[in-house]
Write a protein that binds this DNA or RNA. Structure first.
Length: 411
DNA sequence: AATCCACAGGAAGTGCTGGGCG
DNA sequence: CGCCCAGCACTTCCTGTGGATT
């Protein structure tokens, strides 16, 4: 105690802080009854307001119960409309009814966005794990097909966020998977493709497109009332009674309803708000906690993505930022490249080509940090006009974490 | 109506990493 | 060990283009 107190400049202040922290902590174990109920991976026992979609999907894949291959399904819906939850839920229920001969593989294509990784996951789903690198894709393909054929039965493949796979690696794996059944006799493959981007279908080979879209399911966004209802039900399990102030759930629902009815966001806000309340030792979660959570969610998202960017992406972003700060109107690719080259000179790294910067600008646009749209300025050429559409403060904070950039940001 | 700017963005290739196979 | 593979970040070279200006 003495050591602790004398080590700190403020005498026994640290002791007071610790005391309060521990007291609060002990007192506030009472907010969460079961925190994991609010985590995004959690699939609840009931999925309210998605009964219709559950039924439709179940009808489509029910043929596996009689041992025949169900049609391929394509599921479309905005983020947080319950696509993944419904799919997992229906598959889980199905597996309870089926004795043998059915295998499922769930692949998140954002995490496994290359042909090789998708095939590797499929291979391990049929019980033939392969090294995560080193083999040729045709080799993995062979092993997967061979093992599947020997096992027999039906394999249901869920390709979640399938647009990521197509955008990064093309549709060759999809093409292979939609035609694999012609080579199999003892087993069959059915695909459930899940996405929130309908436009990506246009890039598909027409044969893949028609095969994948044998059945289609659309998930509408949740409305305000439905979101509230979902939050209430989850809260009953997640929290002790009475810890949420009156307006908390409606506020979370309202914010999320504005964001295309994103239920994941609603749950995340509630979770973060309760975390904040607990951390500061409040006995109840208030609307103010929700608003703080909203700001934090937005901020963290930007800071984290910026922080993890490669150097030249950061430099590009910094170039855009400083052009914006100099009140340049209608920032173009050429202007960004010039500024970027200048920044590279100042910290002594060699610049990449303008072609590459053009791609980086597109990447930043896809991340939603900037907005880049192609415009034609007639005589003055054709270029992209770029705007920052997120908090400049948060971007800057992400950039500041990079020591390479410290000399550029000091003043 | 023709021109021509300032890029967009496709194709193909390079060098590197991190691994496998026989 | 030597050779092969996929993925990535990037380059080089290239053709294409919307529309204000001539």
């Amino acid at each position: 105690m003495g050591i602790l107190a004398s080590a700190s400049t403020g005498g026994e202040v640290i002791v007071d802080i610790l005391d309060r922290l521990f007291e609060n902590y002990a007192k506030n174990v009472r907010i969460f009854k079961k925190r994991e109920i609010l985590l995004p991976e959690y699939v609840p026992e009931e999925l309210p307001h998605r009964e219709e979609q559950i039924l439709q999907l179940a009808k489509i894949i029910a043929p596996v119960l009689r041992g025949s291959k169900p049609p391929n399904v394509f599921i479309y819906g905005l983020t947080g409309t319950g696509k993944t939850a419904v799919t997992k839920y229906v598959l889980r229920r199905l597996l309870l009814k089926v004795k043998s001969g059915v295998l499922t593989a769930y692949i998140n294509c954002r995490k496994s966005s290359t042909n090789y990784r998708v095939l590797a996951e499929l291979a391990s789903a049929v019980g033939r794990p392969v090294p995560f690198t080193g083999l040729s894709t045709t080799e993995v393909l062979k092993r997967f097909t061979y093992t599947l054929e020997n096992r027999g039965g039906i394999l249901l493949i869920v390709l979640d966020e399938i647009d990521w796979l197509v955008k990064r690696s093309g549709d060759s794996v999809l093409y292979f998977l939609t035609r694999i059944n012609e080579e199999l006799s003892r087993s069959k493959v059915a695909i459930i493709g899940v996405t929130n981007d309908l436009k990506f279908m246009e890039y598909l080979d027409p044969r893949v497109k028609s095969s994948l879209g044998e059945e289609e399911l659309v998930f509408p966004p949740y409305n305000n009332r439905e979101l509230e209802d979902i939050l209430r039900r989850r809260s009953e399990e997640a929290f002790y009674p009475g810890v949420l102030e009156e307006g908390v759930i409606p506020l979370c629902a309202a914010i999320a309803a504005k964001q295309n009815g994103d239920c994941r966001l609603a749950l995340d806000l509630l979770l973060k708000a309760a975390d904040l309340a607990e951390r500061e030792g409040a006995s109840k979660v208030s609307e103010e906690h929700v608003r703080m959570a909203q700001r934090e969610v937005e901020r963290n998202l930007i800071v984290d993505t910026v922080k993890s960017m490669p150097l030249h992406v950061k430099l590009t972003l910094l170039a855009i930022l400083s052009l914006e700060k100099n009140r340049v109107k209608n920032i173009t690719t050429g202007e960004i490249y010039e500024k970027y080259r200048n920044l590279c000179n100042r910290i002594g790294v060699s610049a990449v080509s303008q072609r590459r910067i053009s791609d980086i600008i597109n990447e930043l646009d896809m991340l939603g940090i900037i907005n880049a749209r192609v415009v034609s300025l007639g005589r003055y050429g054709r270029t992209k006009v770029i705007k920052i559409v997120t908090s400049e403060e948060s971007i800057l904070e992400g950039l500041r974490r990079d020591i390479n950039l410290s000399s550029l940001l000091s003043k």
